[in-house]
Design a protein around this nucleic acid. Structure first.
Lengths: 146, 146
DNA sequence: TGCATGTTGACAACATATTGTCAATTGGGT
DNA sequence: ACCCAATTGACAATATGTTGTCAACATGCA
């Protein structure tokens, strides 16, 4: 019977491993569209409504500086455009350009197909249950520390 | 009822979020010992038996260059030492120094306590089941693509 | 109005990880 | 014994993220 410390280590390793696998999968899906996973995430955040760089960062849970650097790059690449923000002179609203939307649309079918294969192979009910348990684990980690 | 694409996105987000949480928890645990999570992982890999840099990389699932840079740094910091490898002239075996072992030992109690709180709050049976499902998911991802 | 406080983008320094290239080394097959 | 492929460490370039600092801007309160 494993002790608590070993179990904790196993869990952390399992999460790290899956994180790496999902990142690698994302890279494979995004690469044909000429974008990276980070670009995909930033573009995806402004698909539904314009946001400022700091707003995207809050939604993604990373620092605004990280988003800012990627946003600057995406604007330079012509995938993102900034429009004046009436609420903040120095913080423009960001929206995808037509090219930006096209890049996301090129990724969507592959992502959907991959999700479908994953869910079918893992079992839909099991898949939904796993997400639910992962979210409960997130809450637990927030509660107990370290 | 969510479609497959949405479910896949939810799962990826859940994994990314927990990865960030566990990384942050690791940083908090390792920081008092004056080391980082990456240093912890490399030192931990050679606690039981000496390994070459490339061997550590294989075990950790990252590139040997990443391990090499950290190993060089750990040697410079006096936490890791390299000894001649009879099997390979250019690839020395790496072992922790006394200071390196002390650093890990300073982290261990906090890590064990955190694991204990996590398991108690989440439920031991549920915790073990979650690890099992995560490992099954890892296998599934490897099998189905993308 | 005026000022303290918080938000925001710019910039710099650093840590971590990746890919690519190179030369030295190792080991297997002929 | 010899050659060729794989392994390994070194080095460079790049991507992504962090923290810290600064000045410009926004907002709420006296």
């Amino acid at each position: 019977m494993p002790n608590e410390s070993q179990l904790g280590g196993e869990f952390t390793l399992a999460i790290f491993k899956l994180n790496g696998q999902m990142l690698a999968a994302g890279e494979k899906l995004a690469e044909p569209a000429g974008i990276t996973v980070a670009w995909w995430q930033v573009l995806g955040a402004v698909l539904r409504q314009p946001l400022t760089a700091a707003g995207i960062a809050r939604q993604m849970g990373i620092t605004r500086q990280a988003v800012q650097r990627i946003a600057n790059r995406l604007i330079a690449e012509g995938l993102l455009q900034s429009s004046p923000n009436p609420a903040h002179k120095r913080s423009p609203l960001l929206t995808p350009t037509t090219d930006g939307r096209l890049a996301i649309e090129r990724i969507a079918p592959g992502q959907a197909a991959f999700s479908k294969r994953l869910i079918k192979s893992f079992g839909r009910a099991k898949f939904e249950a796993l997400i639910s348990e992962l979210e409960r684990m997130s809450t637990t980690v927030d509660e107990v520390g370290p």
